[in-house]
């Protein structure tokens, strides 16, 4: 709409050799056309953001009563993998043994878990380098040099608290917002 009525008017009105005065009404009309055209752009842009069904499906409820110590499950949260692991005492000790200050992204295991549930580590299974899915959640997968997760794309090693220790990834695996609605149920998102 703006292109068919607005643009020629604005770009050409100056070439009228000063014979015709550009009076108020014409400027107003062209401006109205321009505003109308811009208003039409809004829904065209807005339609690309997540639709109502996608937004409604943006939380995931997970039952972890079956999750054994030392095991991890892969779940799906907002169409992305999320790793839930019940840490062994050995893994917890290993994570706490590292001085937090020495890390690339300094966070303690305590920071990354919820009080009362320090043995349940919930992280996004999305490497912070370029978004690959790290290995280590399923049994038998390569857990990397620090016994946590290992991203095979560019060799990022994460430790038992899923903190970046070696490789190109800039930050630790992201801990999503989640809450325990009961001892065995978590709601992510």
């Amino acid at each position: 709409m703006a292109t068919t009525t607005g643009n020629p008017e604005t770009s050409e009105a100056g070439t009228e050799e000063g014979v015709r005065r550009r009076d108020f009404i014409e400027i107003a009309a062209v401006s109205a056309a321009g505003i109308g055209g811009l208003a039409m752009v809004y829904p065209l842009v807005s339609q690309m953001s997540p639709s109502a069904d996608v937004l409604a499906a943006s939380t995931t409820e997970l039952d972890i009563s079956e999750l054994q110590v030392g095991q991890a499950v892969k779940a799906s949260f907002r169409k992305q993998p999320v790793f839930v692991r019940r840490l062994t005492q050995g893994e917890i000790d290993e994570a706490n043994a590292v001085a937090t200050d020495s890390l690339r992204d300094p966070e303690s295991l305590e920071d990354r878990t919820q009080p009362g549930h320090e043995d349940v580590l919930v992280v996004m299974g999305v490497c912070t380098h370029l978004g690959c899915v790290p290995l280590g959640a399923a049994t038998g997968e390569n857990k990397g040099e620090y016994n946590g997760y290992f991203c095979p794309c560019h060799g990022s090693h994460y430790d038992t608290a899923a903190r970046i220790r070696k490789g190109p990834a800039p930050t630790n695996l992201v801990v999503p917002d989640y809450t325990f609605t009961s001892d065995t149920t978590i709601v992510i998102g």
Partner: peptide, 20 residues
Amino acid sequence: AFTLFATILAWFAKKSVWSA
């Protein structure tokens, strides 16, 4: 409402352009 407003403006603009 907006289109009506813009159309009325366009009508006066057209009249003003063609008046000469």
